[in-house]
């Protein structure tokens, strides 16, 4: 009986410890206030929407994709992503970028676009006749 619990116990303790350590290491918080994003030095997941009026830019030479993003309060920031424009980007209602704010830009490692299928309903109901 004993060896079983010692064996199992060691594995569980070791992995729980390792998990907790890695969790704090890889933990990324969500942030929807860009004022905080700009002042933070940590990697965050910034959520907001693409500022369509300012368009986006694809740089084929440097292989970057950049655009402006705004939070709910209207704070804007420029996002540079090393990669190409994600599928669905144009129709995304909200964008989640993972990265850090440095030197006046948000350097995104990852972009996630959300395209609810109810998109059209929301859009029209907010526009006037």
């Amino acid at each position: 009986m004993k060896s079983k619990y010692i064996f199992g116990g060691i594995i569980i303790v070791v992995f729980l410890g390792l998990m907790m350590y890695l969790f704090t290491q890889s933990n990324i918080e969500y942030a929807d206030d860009f004022a905080k994003v700009k002042s933070s030095e940590k990697t965050v997941k910034a959520t907001g929407s693409w500022v369509k009026e300012k368009n986006y830019e694809l740089n084929n030479k440097q292989k970057t994709f950049s655009f402006f993003m705004a939070d709910d309060k209207g704070n804007e920031m420029k996002v540079i992503y090393e990669g190409t424009i994600p599928n669905n980007f144009e129709s995304a209602v909200s964008v989640v970028v993972t990265g850090k704010y440095q030197n006046g830009y948000f350097h995104a490692k990852d972009i996630l676009t959300k395209c609810p299928s109810k998109y059209e309903d929301q859009k029209t109901s907010s526009s006037s006749i």
């Binding site: 890695l22 290491q25 969500y30």
Partner: peptide, 9 residues
């Protein structure tokens, strides 16, 4: 809980 982990986790 408003947290998330990177895939390297």
């Amino acid at each position: 809980f408003g947290q998330s982990v990177d895939t390297f986790f």
